[in-house]
Amino acid sequence: MQQLVFEAAWEKTIARKDRQTIIRNFEQILATLPSTGVHFTLLKKAVNHRDDLLITVLIHNCNEKPLDFDRDVLQYRLDEQILARHTFHLPLKIAGKTSMPWTFIFPAGSYTEQALRVKGKLEIAARWV
């Protein structure tokens, strides 16, 4: 059974309203999650003061094995058009059958202007093995 977990730093800092929104999103998507694979549910997008694109998602590790992001290439796309692409090295390990909110930061220059205007899809493009 898929469970929702908040990373320790999120647990300490997340606002009550944001936490409730994440829980509600998790509960709504739960019945439609595939039984295996890694999937992302888009929660929100923003641009910070350094012009980095922030994409906040629920990461769903539907596999039995833990998931980490060590030199994994993630891309944000709309249909076949890649709108953002970046390699991530995160101090994050997600247990099997676990969903967790996370914000991926795509540095300025790693995304197109269109990424700000459309609702795309985040996916793993390449994994370091």
Rank of each mutant, 00 (worst) to 15 (best):
Q3E: 05
A8I: 05
K12T: 00
D52Y: 09
C62F: 07
L54R: 14
I59G: 06
L4I: 04
F106E: 02
I105E: 09
D51M: 13
A125G: 02
R16E: 06
I82V: 15
A125Y: 14
R117W: 10
A125F: 14
Q81N: 11
V38H: 09
Q114T: 14
F40P: 00
T103R: 13
H39E: 05
E123H: 05
E64N: 15
E64G: 12
G120E: 01
V129D: 06
I124W: 06
V57M: 00
F106H: 05
L33G: 01
R77W: 05
W10V: 11
L30M: 09
L83K: 13
T21R: 15
D51T: 09
D18N: 01
P101V: 04
E80K: 15
F26I: 03
F104D: 02
I14S: 00
P34N: 06
P107H: 05
I59C: 07
I14C: 00
F88M: 06
I22L: 12
I55M: 07
L30G: 01
Y111H: 06
K12W: 00
M100S: 15
I23N: 04
I105Y: 08
K45D: 00
T41G: 03
E7K: 13
V73E: 12
F106M: 03
I14T: 00
A8L: 08
Q81Y: 12
R117G: 10
T87L: 07
H60D: 08
E11Y: 07
T103G: 04
M100V: 11
L33V: 03
T87I: 12
L116T: 03
T103A: 08
A125Q: 12
Q2M: 14
F69A: 05
K45C: 01
I23T: 10
D18T: 00
L90G: 04
F106T: 01
L90A: 08
A15V: 01
L4H: 04
H60A: 14
L54G: 02
L78T: 04
